[in-house]
Design a protein around this nucleic acid. Sequence first.
DNA 1: TATGAATGAGGGTTCATTCAT
DNA 2: GATGAATGAACCCTCATTCAT
Lengths: 190, 190, 190, 190
Amino acid sequence: MPTSTTKREDIIQSALTLFAERGFDATTIPMIATDAKVGAGTIYRYFSNKEVLVNTMFQHYVSLFKETLEKDYPAESDIREQFHHLFQGMIRFTNEHDHALYFIKTHTSAYFLDANSRDQFSHLLMILENFFDEGKKEKQIRELPSKALIAIIFGGFLQLYQLIRAGELEASEELLAGVENSCWDAVRHP
Amino acid sequence: MPTSTTKREDIIQSALTLFAERGFDATTIPMIATDAKVGAGTIYRYFSNKEVLVNTMFQHYVSLFKETLEKDYPAESDIREQFHHLFQGMIRFTNEHDHALYFIKTHTSAYFLDANSRDQFSHLLMILENFFDEGKKEKQIRELPSKALIAIIFGGFLQLYQLIRAGELEASEELLAGVENSCWDAVRHP
Amino acid sequence: MPTSTTKREDIIQSALTLFAERGFDATTIPMIATDAKVGAGTIYRYFSNKEVLVNTMFQHYVSLFKETLEKDYPAESDIREQFHHLFQGMIRFTNEHDHALYFIKTHTSAYFLDANSRDQFSHLLMILENFFDEGKKEKQIRELPSKALIAIIFGGFLQLYQLIRAGELEASEELLAGVENSCWDAVRHP
Amino acid sequence: MPTSTTKREDIIQSALTLFAERGFDATTIPMIATDAKVGAGTIYRYFSNKEVLVNTMFQHYVSLFKETLEKDYPAESDIREQFHHLFQGMIRFTNEHDHALYFIKTHTSAYFLDANSRDQFSHLLMILENFFDEGKKEKQIRELPSKALIAIIFGGFLQLYQLIRAGELEASEELLAGVENSCWDAVRHP
DNA sequence: TATGAATGAGGGTTCATTCAT
DNA sequence: GATGAATGAACCCTCATTCAT
């Protein structure tokens, strides 16, 4: 494995943590360089500028998240099972990529995201939209625009995740199961 | 009506929009000045620096929001009615102060908030927490940490409102009523 | 006596103190206005800008100092007596116009002095130069360029005066008499 | 010879000249940068801010001056010889570091000097004070406060040097010897 | 005449980006 | 390829100056 790949990944790792903790604007290139143990100039070998770096990262993690949701999707199971799969996907992704979901959430509507990043993100939403559209057809899901339902679930979950990261809530099995039920009741046909 | 009051309000208006859209760090004083149609120096007649500006605004809007929630609170009605009051409060406040709730949410855990701002905000949370705590005692509300319930409602609602502002959803009576029901089902005792 | 004259003098008084204490560059127009109890704009009724203000003041006090030295000059007495008169003049001026001599000293070679101010100051030096030139003719004064002798006396006295203002030395009769003797020995023919 | 050392020295050189000619407050960082032919930001690689820059310089030159005075000090010779050494030290230091002594004098009681700078400066004064104190004990030096004697010598010498730099006087051996005698007569026991 | 709110040029400082090594 | 010294544009903020009242 060539060194360069490692450096590139070190940079992304450091940038992810810092962007999540401090935000894009409050994170400087020298900070990332120091944290990643590379020279500041080195970052520009891999990313032509700071915006390209965030966008690349954003797309990377959105794409990973999408994969996590799609992997082993129980297309044949009932809708509650599918919902469970999606919800567990959020949790699994969060556990595997510590700051990634928080980074995605806090940068989703940032001014510096390019068309590509926005596209990727709407692809992600589409997975969820398809799920809800299908569910409404089967009268299993509440009669609200799918976008609204996603907003409720996604917005709620990510807000909750912030509390967990801030240490105000502990991510116990019990809590997560309870939240899943709550979210399910929010979207399922009454 | 003295000019100064108008200028101060113009500055706050512009700052609110820009802070909500781009965040504190990405919003420059010249941006605010241009948007408010005042000289950059004028901002410093009203706020001794940028941090005082955000904190003043934060406290102002949190306070206004608290008032909106508390005004005419139906203490004697049943819990569903009270939930309705709170939910309508969010909607009313958002309609009256376009970016304010989003500004509050995205800056809630910012590094530049002073003790006063954090205090004000925890008072606000307490109102909501009390509501949920009371409801749980009466077995009307789901057995989840109140903070988690608040996160779900707020996160969902604000995510939804972004869609509305982006023009992807229309804020019809029907939609809002549907969302309120969805949120209620998310928090009410199953 | 019209009000305006009083205001003008208040401004000069305040400016003198502040310029002496903090220097020209560290003194702001609002500071002077506050100290003089006038509006900032009022200063511009009397002095078209900050540089005109210092230059006017500089010329004013240099001129006053010149008058003090020339008043009752004992043209007929012997040279030691004349030296005494000049030296006492410095002391008297310092007592009558508290910060004036310090202001003159610290601003003598300032970048913002105009030709007029420099002229006035060299007129002042000329009085002293004449004294030394005359003394050298009479073999009463050391054979050094008069400018050098002035530098020694003036430089020395003003440096001393700084110590007095800083509170490091007390301006007793005895000290002043001793310094006068020291200065006289520095310039008199050996 | 590494470039960085040169840049640092260029910055100090330019700052020294400008601080001496215009004073700290009237000297801007861009002025120094332009004069030193470096970018404005470069100054901050070497000095964390403008105040650190003056203080560093102040301490540097005070220290150098002290060394000049102490180097080869004729502790065993008579007091006139020692005075000669000190006086020649002033001349030598001034010739080697053009604006340094004037910079020291005009910034001695500035508001931005830190404890370290003040310390260094009082060490310098102590050397001179010791000389005068010793001389007074031996009845070789006039009975005046040592601080006053220092003020007279320094004030006079620097005022003179300004004339020399302004081209109004030529620094001939003869003149300097004459001035040394004049200063000696100012301080020696009558 | 007197005021002080308003302005914007310019100050100190930071940091994304470049480039010689 | 990797570095970090160097740069200068752009930030936050101050203050001399103007001008409506």
